[in-house]
């Protein structure tokens, strides 16, 4: 069913050009994509059908927030909120406004997260999805505010909160204002926690820095998408610090599962049904009340 959704031209954005090295662009690149991991040639039609996952090696390509929503929530159920919030420039940082404008044009997004109410298998949820293509999914004032609004909406409506994360780090150009979003979002999640409302975080590739070290890591259930890089400090920084090679598979979803940092690793094709199963146990399951 969600294959149809994903197939809607409105949502599909296969920019194979971006997935190649510059000199790798061939005249046929609008037809096929070379897998980043195994170099297999995959027809774009096939890749889209397969939810942007390599049919040969199960490599999960990064997808946009809109595509993610399309393959996750019930058709026509998504009602966006807080769309009108846009970034300012709290520090007057050189070229920040230009960078924001470029990101808006390039991605067609207003910021690095989309938030709204939706349903999964007819179970209502509040959902937020981050997008890595918007300034590396960095958390500035707007991302912090929208995540906080999502948590507060969840508290208000008593509906489970689901957040899909992808982030390269803090929004450097907003300085300490950006760092403080970690405190703000974590405080908002605490209120959900105290109220006994379910919060599921799905960490997708890559989730690192301040997002990992705040609202993402304190969910009731943490799902990592197959192969996702999940880190506090990125591999490059660590390699520089310790001047040694990193272990095989370090900071990948499976590594985090092994070390007890996430509850499960789930393939993209199973994500929606897995979320639905968790929601069902949680929402429909009879509870012991003493």
């Amino acid at each position: 069913m969600f294959k149809d959704l994903f197939g809607k031209p409105k949502y599909v954005t296969v920019r194979s050009r971006e997935r190649h090295d510059r000199d790798d662009i061939s005249p046929d690149s609008h037809l096929w994509t070379k897998c980043t991991n195994c170099n297999a040639i995959i027809f774009n039609k096939k890749l889209v059908e397969n939810l942007m996952v390599c049919p040969e090696c199960n490599y999960h390509f990064r997808i946009s927030a809109r595509d993610r929503l399309a393959i996750t929530v019930d058709e026509d159920s998504f009602q966006e909120f807080a769309r009108d919030i846009q970034s300012e420039d709290p520090l007057g940082f050189p070229q920040y406004r230009e960078k924001l404008l470029q990101a808006k044009i390039k991605t067609g997004l207003d910021e690095a997260v989309i938030t709204g109410e939706a349903a999964i298998d007819n179970m209502p949820v509040v959902i937020g999805v981050m997008d890595f293509t918007f300034l590396g999914g960095s958390m500035g004032s707007v991302v912090g505010e929208k995540i906080t609004i999502a948590a507060e909406r969840s508290l208000e409506t008593q509906r489970p909160l689901i957040l899909f994360t992808t982030a390269g780090g803090a929004r450097m150009q907003e300085g300490l204002v950006s760092l403080m979003q970690m405190a703000k979002t974590s405080a908002a999640v605490r209120r959900l926690d105290k109220a006994g409302i379910l919060y599921i975080c799905v960490m997708t590739d890559p989730t690192s820095g301040g997002v990992t070290a705040s609202f993402a890591s304190i969910a009731d259930i943490i799902i990592a998408e197959t192969g996702a890089l999940i880190a506090f400090a990125g591999p490059r920084v660590i390699k520089q610090t310790i001047s040694a090679d990193l272990p095989e598979g370090f900071q990948r979803a499976e590594f985090l599962l092994e070390h007890g940092m996430v509850d499960m690793v789930v393939d993209r094709k199973d994500m929606r049904s897995q979320l639905a199963r968790i929601l069902k146990i949680h929402v429909q399951g009879v509870r012991y009340c003493g």
């Binding site: 990992t212 993402a216 890591s217 304190i218 506090f232 660590i238 900071q251 070390h259």
Partner: peptide
Amino acid sequence: PGIGAEERGQAEAIAR
């Protein structure tokens, strides 16, 4: 930023 710190959940410790 080190291997052990990541393995033992630096991000989770700060977030918590």
